[in-house]
Design a protein around this nucleic acid. Structure first.
Lengths: 136, 136
DNA sequence: GTGTCTGCAAACGATTTGCAAATTA
DNA sequence: TAATTTGCAAATCGTTTGCAGACAC
């Protein structure tokens, strides 16, 4: 895994302190933090940090494929620096979000020991038949 | 399929005009409407209708399993009166949302003719191992 | 009459936007 | 100094809440 500064330079993103620290933070924390959490945790070491910059940076990182976003229907968006294909499990008791590295069809059978599956939501994105025909 | 009034009575929901029409509307329209759309379409025939009532009713219907909600990350919530297990495909060109009745593992191969799949997001909900152990 | 339902208006909260100061090349 | 980045403050907008009047049993 290249360092944060290397990843930013590769994507032609100027490696400001804020951008490097936010990307580093997401790579260290594996708990899919929100903007609020990221801001609160980084504010002490970057006293002038603003939420606007956190929002701007996350959008920039996402556009360049360095992070992905999760919308679990909680009313806010979570971010994840692990861009490899995987799915997410949210515990309805503790609210924790866990990475699950398996195909969706294995969810019922191969879930980690002790996990109880209640519901799955699958969203697919792409181009419908009508639009694909028109736009080639 | 029981009528709207029958479904409401079965769930011990008092069948007001508003509730019957909103449930009927969702069963007729298969395009996963938003609160805004539902309100705009029903306002002409129920002139005193308020968005609050649409919100209240949808929450009530959802709690009683008569509708499900979709959050495709658009910034608003869509509703669907088809509560059978299925997944949803959003077209990035026209914004249309399509019901797909198949298992997630078949998405790549058995997608309806002409559809182009770009991305899938799978969210699982339940109880994690730690919470399952504590709460039995 | 008593409890439920409706709907107006205000509040809420995550995210976005406008813009000027600060920073960088 | 010209272009980019940052961050404060205000705006946006879907959703929620408070509450009073309307309605149902």
């Amino acid at each position: 895994m290249p360092s944060a500064i290397e990843s930013l330079l590769t994507s032609n993103i100027r490696p400001s302190i804020q951008r490097m620290r936010i990307l580093d933070y997401l790579r260290q924390k594996k708990n899919h933090p929100t903007v609020e959490t990221i801001f609160n945790d980084l504010a002490p070491e970057i006293p002038t940090l603003s939420k606007t910059t956190v929002y701007n940076t996350l959008q920039l990182l996402k556009e360049n494929g360095l992070v992905i976003s999760l919308d679990l229907g909680e009313g806010y968006i979570r971010y994840d620096a692990d861009t490899s294909p995987h799915l997410h499990f949210e515990c309805e008791k503790c609210g924790g979000v866990f990475d699950i590295f398996m195909a969706p069809e294995d969810l019922r059978k191969k879930l980690p020991a002790g996990f109880v599956l209640k519901e799955t939501r699958v969203y697919a994105f792409g181009v419908c038949a009508k639009c694909a025909k028109v736009n080639g």
